[in-house]
Design a protein around this nucleic acid. Structure first.
Lengths: 232, 232
DNA sequence: TTTATTAACTTGTATAGACAAGTATGTACA
DNA sequence: TGTACATACTTGTCTATACAAGTTAATAAA
């Protein structure tokens, strides 16, 4: 049984998604919601507060609460495997597989995939080389429930993204890009100096069923750049 | 007079920013906070809830509430001024203008704006600070033909992007993201160690009439990261 | 008619309590 | 020794109420 405020959220979201409520429409007031759902005002308010925080509703003191125009941004940066990029540049691609195994998640890893601590998950670590020079150290965690055959794949010839999008269409992805200093182990794998700048891309991909994979992609700062083009 | 839950938030943020509390440290429990601040538990809880929503704290039922590793994220997919981002996070914004002048382009600079070598163009260099800490060194070149009043702008109160998009709608933009080592001059401006990792974003913006500006944005690797969300 | 006031709504803040549920640490028992 | 249980602590959900503060519309006064 879901908490009541979640039920109220769902009811409101249903109204919006079914088209019963359109952007600009006024939502029932906190007192009205409290009465129709037989809860206290604070509980009804919590449902509204979370929807406001999620950008789905807008609130204004004295005026009321309204459906916001929350069109999601269209995709402007695509997810391509580094293998595709390298081949498209006409360079030679190769890789070295460091690990391909089932592991027990520590707290951090579990959090990345939103799994309970101690759950088992699939991990691969692969070095990708462009013209025999390492350009990416891929450390990927995969949700076993959503990709049961993952460990049986031959990543010499296929890419993780290709496999994952084949078994379940990816619906969205989060990226975080940072500049970090290369730790000794990373530096060794990437043939770079310890503490030299390293471009780190953390990418979480989602399918309709949940988080599919979390990948940390480390690149030598002097051998890799990230590019994007925006149209307004 | 600020609401009490805002005061409690500030108190906690002060502890974090002063270094009294570091990532991983446990924050006082809701009951403790309620007692020390002489408020009800729900009020103390609201302060914590907002900080959790802002990504500054992490909560776990039965365990407690902890300081998270919370370098703020900026969006990779939209062009927003860093000033907007900082203010939206509820932090204080300030800047120091290093240069605002008309210069003669060298070959590299001319190429960035697709102008003939030796052309004159406008240059601004601004350090952007978040809570008095530098987070971005902006080095911008602007095409004088497309933005004649650029040098007369007061960049203490307006942003380059706001001005540029006012005089000519931006139609597209190219981004390049790299991790580089901070050179001594850059390191000094950004209060970071020489050769420490530095996140560099180069951005070229276009209007219908051509390239409007080319900006190099340098950020301390440990104080800034770039984030984005894709929907397919 | 125009202006000021009032009333009735809205959201915003805050209280004091209750019970549920997850986590850790002891203590007693096997 | 090791296992089970009780306890104390944490966050999670929810109630019923109160007053503050912003907005709108009806009402009363000029």
């Amino acid at each position: 049984m879901q908490p009541r405020f979640v039920q109220i959220k769902s009811a409101i979201l249903d109204d919006i998604e079914s088209g019963k409520m359109k952007p600009g429409d006024k939502v029932a007031s906190e007192n009205q919601l409290a009465e129709t759902h037989s809860v206290s005002r604070m509980t009804a308010r919590r449902a509204l507060t979370e929807l406001v925080d999620e950008g789905i509703l807008l609130r204004s003191q004295g005026l009321g609460t309204f459906v916001s125009d929350h069109r999601p941004m269209s995709s402007m940066l695509t997810i391509r495997s580094i293998q595709e990029e390298i081949l498209q540049r006409g360079h030679t691609y190769s890789n070295r597989i460091l690990q391909q195994a089932e592991i027990i998640a520590d707290d951090t890893q579990a959090a990345w995939l939103a799994l309970p601590p101690g759950a088992s998950l699939y991990q691969t670590q692969i070095i990708h080389l462009e013209n025999q020079l390492p350009v990416q150290l891929e450390n990927r965690l995969v949700n076993p429930a959503l990709a049961p055959d993952y460990l049986q794949q031959n990543f010499q010839h296929t890419t993780a993204n290709a496999y994952l999008s084949r078994i379940a269409p990816l619906t969205e992805a989060d990226h975080v890009v940072e500049a970090i200093a290369a730790e000794p182990e990373v530096a060794a794998h990437l043939s770079m100096a310890v503490n030299a700048p390293c471009l780190k891309v953390s990418r979480r991909t989602y399918s309709a069923k949940g988080i599919v994979s979390y990948a940390q992609l480390l690149h030598p700062g002097d051998r890799y750049r990230l590019g994007g083009h925006l149209d307004f």
